[in-house]
Design a protein around this nucleic acid. Structure first.
Lengths: 308, 308
DNA sequence: TGCGTATTATCAATTTAACAGATTTGTATT
DNA sequence: AATACAAATCTGTTAAATTGATAATACGCA
């Protein structure tokens, strides 16, 4: 390793401002020191990162190649520094979750956890599955909670509970009084569902795919709340996670439709890095979640909403 | 940034050998220097990474937490150093591809490319889509070639050609003489297909899903070659990429069945990191691939196999 | 228990690297 | 040509890294 993080820092700043002086100011060092640092970096690898056009520096091909990777390295270094400075005591916990889980489940889990461990700082990051996996892979997150299964040699995946989607409609809808619906009835309805690519949509489509039946989608929305409102106003019937509907069902503003022919369950999965050290906070959080699973099985409840 | 890469190097080695002396030997430095480096790292963050049990150092919770991230950082640093040392001249190229693409397409593309640029070193990594995306995101790969579409704020996706799956059977099969088949005929056949989760399987199932028809799957295999052999021996009919069947069709060992009612095309997509600098090698490779696309359109060919 | 050995920590001295301030060089502007 | 500005270079100073030697400590073994 013939370079230092300092040199990389100087390099990225100079590249950013296209100026040694400004970079030096930013880094609270002399212009001379910055100039030397850059020259030293170039000298030790016998290459040029900038073209010198007189007094201006113009970053060249190799420099441009280096720049994003240098930035990424510095970012990772900073994350590592965060670990060293923040993490005294019981430790903190960074959890990543997908949107459905993050908004309805992870917040409850984290609430529980924080009650039991008031001193532990917890952060929740809501992203899509791919982003969470990537952040787990680069140690930016301690723990991920995603929909579906996941396989990767560097990542441990532990299936957690199965979530249940539920078909629902407005109270004044004909199916509301009936309380249940057959496949044929469902196919004739107009649907309001999540957008293509969302975990909810995938689970929804797979349920119908097993029966080789087409459905009429009237509206695609990116948020469950939007779907609830659209269904409330009678635009059609919807299908989202039961977790997001608990209050609405209790209130009576929306009504569940039983669909015995459809399998609307899906799996939630915990993931973490194979080589990541499990902090006490991580272990505690996981065992709390595992404990909830056992409660579910014992009490013959299908969904989590009644428990958390 | 109050730590240096050197300190991290010393830390990881000491953790590896549980010994300052051995680590110092490994790093070609004095025991004293290694001891100081570790102490300095601990002092500057006011923490302990090891428990001192007499003359032995036993890594503690924080140390274990730090270790994998330190290793990851050093690995990334080394990759960056590789860039600085190797990459003089035209540069090298790291391409990631999924299995179907990697085995039948990427090798041909890379062959073409290397013929035109003999001095350029190219590496091909075959992984699943998620892994490729992750490696693109962390700058480990220059370029990825995946099946389907992909959306991510940090990743640029450029649709390339559409690949075509084709239904096929053994020459002695009744459908072989007919040369084509209706949806009803296809549904009555027994199928040999790729496993759940593969890009080929997804494309196959989506084609039937559009018509709300179920198919009878007799055998699931993880390799196209296996499927070809199984179909050859009359176990059923198959559906895989036309690219993998060109030779078999030419030889006559397998026969294509036209399926006008089914849309068996799928998209191949190039991906690269938004912030990655496009080396000459990258640009050249991409423009070669784009050039092939134009040839396809001009010559009214649907598949690539006749061209490369 | 006492002694040799191995290992870490510490000290003193030296080399090396980092840095600031002043100076020089090179380029663009007028 | 004079001026202005920015990068490179030079010089001395300070801080850090490293070494070799030494002290302190624990372990194994008689």
């Amino acid at each position: 390793m013939r370079f230092t993080l300092r040199q990389l820092q100087v390099f990225t700043r100079i590249a950013q401002y296209q100026s040694v002086s400004q970079a030096a100011d930013q880094l609270a060092m002399s212009q001379s020191a910055a100039s030397t640092a850059l020259k030293e970096l170039e000298r030790s690898y016998d290459c040029l990162l900038f073209d010198r056009a007189g007094k201006r520096l113009i970053i060249n091909a190799l420099g441009l190649e280096l720049l994003p990777r240098a930035r990424a390295l510095l970012e990772q270094a900073q994350a590592l520094e965060g670990l060293l400075t923040d993490n005294h005591g019981f430790g903190s916990l960074s959890v990543g979750a997908t949107m459905t889980i993050g908004n309805y489940l992870a917040t409850l889990l984290i609430g529980h956890f924080m009650q039991q461990h008031p001193s532990c700082k917890v952060r929740l990051h809501v992203h899509n599955t791919a982003q969470i996996v990537q952040q787990i892979a680069s140690y930016q997150l301690d723990l991920g909670l995603i929909e579906g299964y996941y396989q990767d040699s560097n990542i441990i995946a532990e299936p957690w509970i199965a979530d249940e989607l539920v078909v629902f409609c407005a109270p004044q809808h004909p199916l509301a009084q009936q309380g249940h619906a057959s496949l044929d009835e469902l196919v004739n309805e107009e649907w309001i569902v999540r957008e293509q690519g969302s975990g909810t949509r995938v689970a929804f489509e797979q349920a119908f795919m097993r029966h080789q039946r087409a459905i009429k989608i009237r509206l695609e929305l990116e948020h469950t709340e939007g779907i609830k409102r659209a269904v409330e106003s009678g635009l059609g019937i919807g299908c989202i996670s039961r977790l997001a509907l608990r209050d609405a069902f209790k209130r009576g503003s929306l009504v569940a439709i039983e669909t015995p022919e459809l399998n609307l369950t899906r799996q939630f999965t915990f993931i973490w890095h194979k080589h990541k050290y499990q902090t006490d906070a991580m272990s505690e959080f996981l065992s709390l979640c595992r404990g909830l699973t056992e409660n579910i099985q014992r009490s013959d409840q299908i969904d989590l909403a009644t428990l958390v």
